[in-house]
Protein backbone atom coordinates (compact mmCIF):
# COMPACT_ATOMS: atom_id res chain seq x y z
CA UNK A 1 0.00 0.00 0.00
CA UNK A 2 2.71 2.39 1.05
CA UNK A 3 4.74 1.53 -2.04
CA UNK A 4 1.75 2.13 -4.29
CA UNK A 5 1.13 5.46 -2.68
CA UNK A 6 4.74 6.47 -3.21
CA UNK A 7 4.58 5.38 -6.80
CA UNK A 8 1.48 7.50 -7.29
CA UNK A 9 3.12 10.55 -5.80
CA UNK A 10 6.38 9.97 -7.61
CA UNK A 11 4.79 9.91 -11.02
CA UNK A 12 5.19 13.49 -12.13
CA UNK A 13 2.36 13.42 -14.65
CA UNK A 14 -0.20 11.86 -12.33
CA UNK A 15 0.72 14.32 -9.62
CA UNK A 16 0.38 17.21 -12.04
CA UNK A 17 -3.00 15.98 -13.26
CA UNK A 18 -4.12 15.57 -9.64
CA UNK A 19 -3.33 19.17 -8.81
CA UNK A 20 -4.90 20.47 -12.00
CA UNK A 21 -8.13 18.67 -11.07
CA UNK A 22 -8.00 20.09 -7.52
CA UNK A 23 -7.43 23.63 -8.84
CA UNK A 24 -10.27 23.10 -11.32
CA UNK A 25 -12.64 22.06 -8.53
CA UNK A 26 -11.69 25.12 -6.45
CA UNK A 27 -12.27 27.34 -9.50
CA UNK A 28 -15.69 25.81 -10.14
CA UNK A 29 -16.76 26.18 -6.49
CA UNK A 30 -15.77 29.86 -6.51
CA UNK A 31 -17.57 30.40 -9.82
CA UNK A 32 -20.73 28.65 -8.64
CA UNK A 33 -20.76 30.59 -5.37
CA UNK A 34 -21.10 33.78 -7.48
CA UNK A 35 -18.85 35.74 -5.15
CA UNK A 36 -17.49 37.38 -8.28
CA UNK A 37 -19.48 38.68 -11.22
CA UNK A 38 -20.06 35.76 -13.64
CA UNK A 39 -18.96 38.01 -16.51
CA UNK A 40 -15.53 38.19 -14.94
CA UNK A 41 -15.38 34.71 -13.38
CA UNK A 42 -17.06 32.18 -15.70
CA UNK A 43 -17.75 28.54 -14.91
CA UNK A 44 -15.40 25.86 -16.24
CA UNK A 45 -17.90 24.30 -18.63
CA UNK A 46 -18.53 27.74 -20.18
CA UNK A 47 -14.80 28.21 -20.67
CA UNK A 48 -14.34 24.74 -22.14
CA UNK A 49 -17.29 24.97 -24.51
CA UNK A 50 -16.01 28.32 -25.76
CA UNK A 51 -12.54 26.82 -26.20
CA UNK A 52 -13.95 23.83 -28.07
CA UNK A 53 -15.92 26.20 -30.30
CA UNK A 54 -12.76 28.18 -31.09
CA UNK A 55 -10.79 24.99 -31.76
CA UNK A 56 -13.40 23.47 -34.05
CA UNK A 57 -13.74 26.56 -36.19
CA UNK A 58 -9.96 26.50 -36.53
CA UNK A 59 -9.20 30.09 -35.56
CA UNK A 60 -7.35 29.38 -32.37
CA UNK A 61 -5.22 26.65 -33.95
CA UNK A 62 -4.11 28.83 -36.87
CA UNK A 63 -3.37 31.74 -34.59
CA UNK A 64 -1.47 29.59 -32.11
CA UNK A 65 0.61 28.12 -34.91
CA UNK A 66 1.33 31.61 -36.17
CA UNK A 67 2.49 32.75 -32.71
CA UNK A 68 4.62 29.62 -32.39
CA UNK A 69 6.21 30.27 -35.77
CA UNK A 70 7.11 33.79 -34.61
CA UNK A 71 8.65 32.37 -31.43
CA UNK A 72 10.53 29.75 -33.38
CA UNK A 73 12.04 32.32 -35.73
CA UNK A 74 12.90 34.67 -32.87
CA UNK A 75 14.43 31.96 -30.69
CA UNK A 76 16.43 30.53 -33.60
CA UNK A 77 17.90 33.94 -34.40
CA UNK A 78 18.62 34.62 -30.72
CA UNK A 79 20.29 31.22 -30.41
CA UNK A 80 22.68 31.91 -33.26
CA UNK A 81 23.56 35.37 -31.96
CA UNK A 82 24.00 34.03 -28.41
CA UNK A 83 26.30 31.19 -29.49
CA UNK A 84 28.44 33.53 -31.59
CA UNK A 85 28.70 36.22 -28.91
CA UNK A 86 29.38 33.87 -26.01
CA UNK A 87 31.77 31.78 -28.09
CA UNK A 88 33.78 34.90 -28.98
CA UNK A 89 33.74 35.94 -25.32
CA UNK A 90 35.13 32.59 -24.31
CA UNK A 91 38.08 33.25 -26.64
CA UNK A 92 38.75 36.95 -26.01
CA UNK A 93 38.58 38.76 -22.70
CA UNK A 94 38.21 42.18 -24.42
CA UNK A 95 35.19 40.89 -26.27
CA UNK A 96 33.77 39.46 -23.08
CA UNK A 97 33.90 42.93 -21.56
CA UNK A 98 31.94 44.24 -24.54
CA UNK A 99 29.29 41.54 -24.26
CA UNK A 100 28.97 42.08 -20.53
CA UNK A 101 28.49 45.80 -21.10
CA UNK A 102 25.80 45.03 -23.67
CA UNK A 103 24.06 42.74 -21.17
CA UNK A 104 24.27 45.38 -18.44
CA UNK A 105 22.62 47.92 -20.75
CA UNK A 106 20.02 45.81 -22.50
CA UNK A 107 19.02 43.07 -20.08
CA UNK A 108 17.07 45.24 -17.60
CA UNK A 109 15.00 46.87 -20.38
CA UNK A 110 11.55 45.28 -20.72
CA UNK A 111 10.56 44.68 -24.34
CA UNK A 112 7.36 46.66 -23.84
CA UNK A 113 9.36 49.70 -22.71
CA UNK A 114 11.24 49.52 -26.00
CA UNK A 115 8.04 49.40 -28.05
CA UNK A 116 7.83 53.08 -29.01
CA UNK A 117 11.42 52.94 -30.22
CA UNK A 118 10.88 49.69 -32.10
CA UNK A 119 7.82 51.16 -33.84
CA UNK A 120 9.95 54.09 -34.99
CA UNK A 121 12.86 51.95 -36.17
CA UNK A 122 11.33 48.77 -37.48
CA UNK A 123 7.65 49.57 -37.81
CA UNK A 124 4.75 47.46 -36.62
CA UNK A 125 4.99 44.31 -38.71
CA UNK A 126 6.28 40.82 -38.00
CA UNK A 127 9.84 42.13 -37.89
CA UNK A 128 9.07 44.21 -34.83
CA UNK A 129 7.56 41.26 -32.95
CA UNK A 130 10.52 39.06 -33.81
CA UNK A 131 12.85 41.81 -32.65
CA UNK A 132 11.10 41.91 -29.26
CA UNK A 133 11.33 38.12 -28.99
CA UNK A 134 15.05 38.18 -29.78
CA UNK A 135 15.57 40.92 -27.22
CA UNK A 136 13.78 38.99 -24.47
CA UNK A 137 15.47 35.65 -25.24
CA UNK A 138 19.00 36.71 -26.14
CA UNK A 139 20.29 38.10 -22.84
CA UNK A 140 19.29 35.28 -20.48
CA UNK A 141 20.67 32.85 -23.05
CA UNK A 142 24.05 34.61 -23.25
CA UNK A 143 24.29 34.96 -19.48
CA UNK A 144 23.68 31.25 -19.03
CA UNK A 145 26.09 30.26 -21.78
CA UNK A 146 28.85 32.46 -20.35
CA UNK A 147 28.29 31.04 -16.86
CA UNK A 148 28.32 27.58 -18.35
CA UNK A 149 31.67 28.08 -20.07
CA UNK A 150 33.17 29.71 -16.99
CA UNK A 151 32.02 26.98 -14.62
CA UNK A 152 34.04 24.28 -16.37
CA UNK A 153 36.95 23.36 -14.10
CA UNK A 154 40.36 23.59 -15.81
CA UNK A 155 41.06 20.07 -14.70
CA UNK A 156 38.44 18.81 -17.19
CA UNK A 157 40.45 20.20 -20.08
CA UNK A 158 43.63 18.75 -18.64
CA UNK A 159 42.00 15.35 -18.39
CA UNK A 160 40.96 15.70 -22.00
CA UNK A 161 44.52 16.45 -22.99
CA UNK A 162 45.72 13.43 -21.08
CA UNK A 163 43.34 11.36 -23.16
CA UNK A 164 45.00 12.82 -26.22
CA UNK A 165 42.10 15.02 -27.42
CA UNK A 166 42.82 17.93 -29.75
CA UNK A 167 41.06 21.33 -29.50
CA UNK A 168 38.01 20.20 -31.47
CA UNK A 169 37.80 17.08 -29.37
CA UNK A 170 37.95 19.12 -26.19
CA UNK A 171 35.14 21.37 -27.43
CA UNK A 172 33.06 18.45 -28.64
CA UNK A 173 33.55 16.03 -25.74
CA UNK A 174 34.21 18.33 -22.80
CA UNK A 175 33.17 21.97 -23.20
CA UNK A 176 29.78 21.43 -24.86
CA UNK A 177 28.55 18.63 -22.59
CA UNK A 178 29.80 20.49 -19.51
CA UNK A 179 28.09 23.73 -20.48
CA UNK A 180 24.89 22.03 -21.65
CA UNK A 181 22.96 22.16 -18.34
CA UNK A 182 23.39 25.93 -18.34
CA UNK A 183 22.47 26.10 -21.99
CA UNK A 184 19.24 24.16 -21.39
CA UNK A 185 18.36 26.36 -18.42
CA UNK A 186 18.95 29.40 -20.63
CA UNK A 187 16.70 27.92 -23.29
CA UNK A 188 13.96 27.25 -20.73
CA UNK A 189 14.06 30.83 -19.47
CA UNK A 190 14.23 32.10 -23.05
CA UNK A 191 11.25 30.03 -24.11
CA UNK A 192 9.09 31.34 -21.25
CA UNK A 193 10.20 34.88 -21.97
CA UNK A 194 9.50 34.47 -25.68
CA UNK A 195 5.90 33.45 -24.97
CA UNK A 196 5.33 36.50 -22.82
CA UNK A 197 6.97 38.76 -25.36
CA UNK A 198 4.98 37.46 -28.30
CA UNK A 199 1.64 37.66 -26.51
CA UNK A 200 2.16 41.20 -25.26
CA UNK A 201 3.59 42.41 -28.57
CA UNK A 202 0.66 40.95 -30.49
CA UNK A 203 -1.76 42.66 -28.17
CA UNK A 204 -0.14 45.97 -29.07
CA UNK A 205 0.52 45.45 -32.77
CA UNK A 206 -2.69 43.78 -33.78
CA UNK A 207 -2.99 41.36 -36.63
CA UNK A 208 0.54 41.43 -37.97
CA UNK A 209 0.97 39.11 -40.92
CA UNK A 210 -2.65 38.78 -41.97
CA UNK A 211 -4.25 36.53 -39.37
CA UNK A 212 -2.64 37.64 -36.13
CA UNK A 213 -1.56 35.36 -33.33
CA UNK A 214 -2.83 34.19 -29.99
CA UNK A 215 -2.20 37.58 -28.34
CA UNK A 216 -4.42 39.30 -30.88
CA UNK A 217 -7.09 36.65 -30.33
CA UNK A 218 -7.00 37.22 -26.57
CA UNK A 219 -7.12 40.98 -27.08
CA UNK A 220 -10.16 40.66 -29.34
CA UNK A 221 -11.85 38.45 -26.74
CA UNK A 222 -11.19 41.14 -24.17
CA UNK A 223 -12.64 44.04 -26.14
CA UNK A 224 -15.73 42.04 -27.07
CA UNK A 225 -16.06 41.00 -23.42
CA UNK A 226 -15.90 37.32 -24.28
CA UNK A 227 -14.38 36.34 -20.92
CA UNK A 228 -14.79 32.56 -21.39
CA UNK A 229 -13.01 32.87 -24.75
CA UNK A 230 -10.27 34.89 -23.08
CA UNK A 231 -9.72 32.12 -20.56
CA UNK A 232 -9.75 29.67 -23.48
CA UNK A 233 -6.79 31.54 -24.98
CA UNK A 234 -4.97 31.48 -21.64
CA UNK A 235 -5.57 27.72 -21.35
CA UNK A 236 -3.94 27.24 -24.75
CA UNK A 237 -0.87 29.18 -23.57
CA UNK A 238 -0.65 27.14 -20.37
CA UNK A 239 -1.20 23.89 -22.24
CA UNK A 240 1.59 24.57 -24.71
CA UNK A 241 3.84 25.73 -21.88
CA UNK A 242 3.32 22.46 -19.99
CA UNK A 243 3.73 20.45 -23.18
CA UNK A 244 7.08 22.03 -23.98
CA UNK A 245 8.30 21.89 -20.39
CA UNK A 246 7.24 18.31 -19.65
CA UNK A 247 7.87 16.73 -22.99
CA UNK A 248 10.37 18.68 -25.07
CA UNK A 249 12.78 19.84 -22.37
CA UNK A 250 12.34 16.66 -20.36
CA UNK A 251 13.30 14.58 -23.40
CA UNK A 252 16.18 16.88 -24.21
CA UNK A 253 17.56 16.51 -20.70
CA UNK A 254 17.03 12.76 -20.73
CA UNK A 255 18.99 12.16 -23.91
CA UNK A 256 21.76 14.57 -22.98
CA UNK A 257 22.70 15.76 -19.54
CA UNK A 258 20.95 13.08 -17.51
CA UNK A 259 22.29 10.33 -19.74
CA UNK A 260 25.79 11.76 -19.36
CA UNK A 261 25.43 11.99 -15.61
CA UNK A 262 25.46 15.79 -15.50
CA UNK A 263 22.35 16.15 -13.37
CA UNK A 264 20.00 14.03 -11.29
Amino acid sequence: MLIMKNKFINNKYILRLFWIVILGIIWQVVALSQVFNPTSFPRIETILSSLIHDVTNGDIILQTLYSLSLIFRGVAAALIIAIVLSGLSAISQTFEGFVETLIAIAHPLPGIALLPLIILWIGIGEGAIIFIIIHSVLWPLIINLLTGFKSIPKIYKKIGKNYGLNTIGIIRYILIPAALPYFITGLKIGWARAWRAVISAEMVFGAAGGIGGLGWLIFKKRVFMDTPGLFGGLIVIVFIGILVEDIFFDRLEKITIRKWGMSI
Partner: peptide
Protein backbone atom coordinates in the same frame (compact mmCIF):
# COMPACT_ATOMS: atom_id res chain seq x y z
CA UNK B 1 -21.11 42.96 -48.62
CA UNK B 2 -18.77 41.62 -45.93
CA UNK B 3 -18.52 43.54 -42.70
CA UNK B 4 -15.48 41.53 -41.51
CA UNK B 5 -13.44 42.11 -44.67
CA UNK B 6 -10.98 44.56 -43.11
CA UNK B 7 -10.87 42.99 -39.64
CA UNK B 8 -7.45 41.42 -40.00
CA UNK B 9 -5.85 44.62 -41.26
CA UNK B 10 -6.49 46.52 -38.06
CA UNK B 11 -3.82 47.85 -35.77
CA UNK B 12 -4.85 48.78 -32.26
Amino acid sequence: SDSHKLDNQLVT
